[in-house]
Design a protein around this nucleic acid. Structure first.
Lengths: 390, 390
DNA sequence: GGAAACAACTTAAACGCTTAACCTGCGTTG
DNA sequence: CAACGCAGGTTAAGCGTTTAAGTTGTTTCC
């Protein structure tokens, strides 16, 4: 029952307050006759309430659903009976009887990724306002789990699903749509019946960073990419290349990352050794940026004096980091809200044709970026001379 | 339809691909006759499958539930029919008919607080392994929403609820328990029928930090508290005071924080001005620690050379921070897993008496702490002389 | 003053599934 | 060879709601 301090052991102690009895996890099946799973716990039903109040079940139902078909007096009677008995209606019976449940689903890749909680929260908040319940599924980046998540949504007969992950096949999306379940999707899927599209303006965000760095005198701007498989990553990379060319700069060097701290760290070390070293680094997200900064600092390169770093997504991390990170706010809270609005519109409208929503991006300047180092300035001026004005 | 770059405007553009039609949000109610919300979409039922396969609904059900009562050949026939038709069973009808649904709920304060996603994930993962579905409710620290969350759990007839927030009344807990819904709770509630208790060993965690700092020669160790209202915060504060006295040190100074970055920042500035300045600061959580470090750095105090900082909770932040933070791992992932296990045991056992689970804490040394500054050492030796060995 | 309209209910038929109880035919068994 | 057991089904009675349709008793209106 006691315990001792040992830094290397996960200490979990089980203190059983009750006298030990045979119902442990390994309890043999033979004597498991009267488990609560078997005897249906006769719970309070609407009929009990009706009897107690001396009315019909229909009246109770009408009171609970505020249809306005019940007289004032009866209404109060029913309500007080409900309170007295502690009756809570059964959500499942309700849904079954009424046909259409007011539920939305949201599917995300990874709830631990700081990107998602905010989206989930705003989605759920907005859904509530519109009178929907929300259920969440986390796929853990696993396509099989994604299919399971979609199936769960169908089983629960949701009215709409906000798909916030890319590990999902178009086929699955269409399967949902065919069942008349509204879907919002990020980027990939084309708009069609029951399917709307949420598009984050990555291109504009990247453009703003390049523009900003350019104006600070940076000319060698590296890019730390993410996982090549993810479409949104490819989009950002392309946008980087295009924006660079737009201001007359050659893209590169481009380093591989993994969207995680570790990848950024490695990239930071690599960049420190580069010659000539870039004067600015665009990381594909904040987490990578934090890693890059750490890597550079470990290698003795000062940020932002010697090199500027930028992130993307404006997670809280950007704010907490030391130095704070220059990043792009893609308005994650809008993402969730708009998803809910879009689903609502699709499921309420008589014409369920999808739409496309574009969500803007906004540059947020932090401490991790500054003017290009002075020794670069002469070069800059030379560059100015040879590059035509935009 | 176009858009222009403006850093101060949230840019959200709606591009409607479809020809405009009258079903906008402000559409008048008169002509909303045939909305999809009204006409029950006759969806595929088990009867359709049964007919198509030429068997009874009971057989289909038995196949789907793998009761083993169906012959091999029929089984295959049914399964292929299901696939062919794209039939998905209705979760609500299922639950209603079978009485006991296999669902757990989890109630958290704030999904955006990095503490929770990890707990949720491990809870959900474990619940799945045990064969349960999980539904999530976020209370946003609002007691009213907490009540709603609990009601939602009752409506959904969950078998158990993991309550991970403290903004909940004992009354509510008991109401759940009375309905034979298993509950796990943090700290506050006493164990009883259907209620188990998950206790994090904060005391041991704090003790380890004090011990560790003491051994590094620190004698003036400040504490940054959280919100006085939260019970878990009070526990930590008390543990700090007790641990300090246990090694023969006077507790204090104790500064007020808010569990957030901002509070830490303010505390950091305050500490920089203190005279004599503490040589170490224990922050109540990692986020506060990050703030403290930032505040101190801004005031020109070096970490850890001049002052050591410790956090608590071992969030990813501790790892990403610069310097990395010495913290305490309270095994959040265990919290979720154990909650699921505890609920399962309660709901399966014939004797639903709760138990108490103690989850150990573990010191994780980072870069934010180190030996006390040398100029303090003489003082330390004096202290050693006068303090009896532990 | 009688038809019509209405407010305030009640009745009972779904909703889509599970499951206890029942049936049927075939191989075993004493 | 009658009796039995059992594998592999089927039938039908719920599960707890909602809601269309029906039933009152009371106004309203010409």
């Amino acid at each position: 029952m006691g315990y001792h301090v040992d830094l290397n052991i996960v200490k979990i102690f089980l203190i059983v307050y009750t006298p030990p009895h045979p119902a442990g996890p390994n309890w043999s099946k033979e004597n498991r006759l009267p488990t609560p799973s078997n005897n249906r716990a006769k719970s309070l039903t609407i009929l009990d309430v009706a009897k107690a109040a001396g009315v019909s079940t229909a009246t109770v139902s009408n009171v609970l659903n505020k249809t306005g078909k019940v007289g004032d007096k009866t209404q109060r009677l029913v309500l007080s009976t409900v309170k007295l008995l502690g009756y809570v209606p059964d959500a499942h019976a309700r849904r079954l009887a009424s046909g259409a449940g007011k539920t939305f689903g949201i599917i995300v890749s990874d709830i631990e990724n700081p990107f998602f909680p905010e989206v989930i929260k705003s989605f759920e908040t907005r859904a509530r306002q519109l009178g929907y319940e929300a259920i969440l599924s986390d796929t853990n980046y696993d396509p099989r789990r994604t299919r399971e998540a979609a199936e769960r949504m169908m089983e629960h007969k949701v009215r709409g699903v906000a798909v916030m992950t890319s590990e999902i096949s178009l086929k699955l999306i269409h399967e949902l749509a065919r069942r008349r379940i509204a879907v919002t999707f990020l980027d990939l899927a084309p708009v069609r019946e029951y399917v709307s599209k949420l598009k984050i303006d990555y291109v504009a965000g990247i453009q703003q960073i390049v523009q900003y760095l350019y104006e600070l005198g940076h000319r060698r701007i590296a890019f730390i990419a993410g996982r090549p498989g993810l479409k949104s990553n490819v989009v950002r990379l392309k946008a980087y290349e295009k924006s660079m060319r737009a201001v007359g700069l050659e893209p590169g060097p481009i380093l591989r990352g993994d969207l995680r701290f570790e990848g950024g760290l490695a990239a930071g070390h690599a960049i420190a050794k580069l010659n000539p070293r870039p004067t600015a680094v665009m990381a594909i997200n904040d987490l990578t940026a934090v890693g890059v900064i750490k890597g550079l600092l470990q290698a003795g390169v000062r940020v932002p004096d010697e090199i500027s770093i930028t992130g993307f997504d404006k997670t809280r991390l950007a704010e907490y980091s030391n130095p704070t990170i220059t990043t792009v706010d893609i308005h994650r809270e809008m993402l969730g809200k708009i998803a809910a609005d879009a689903l609502h519109e699709l499921s309420v409208s008589s014409n369920p044709q999808g739409k496309e929503y574009l969500i803007g991006a906004e540059l947020i300047v932090g401490e991790s970026s500054g003017p290009a180092p002075v020794e670069e300035r002469s070069e800059v001026r030379a560059a100015f001379a040879s590059i035509p004005p935009m």
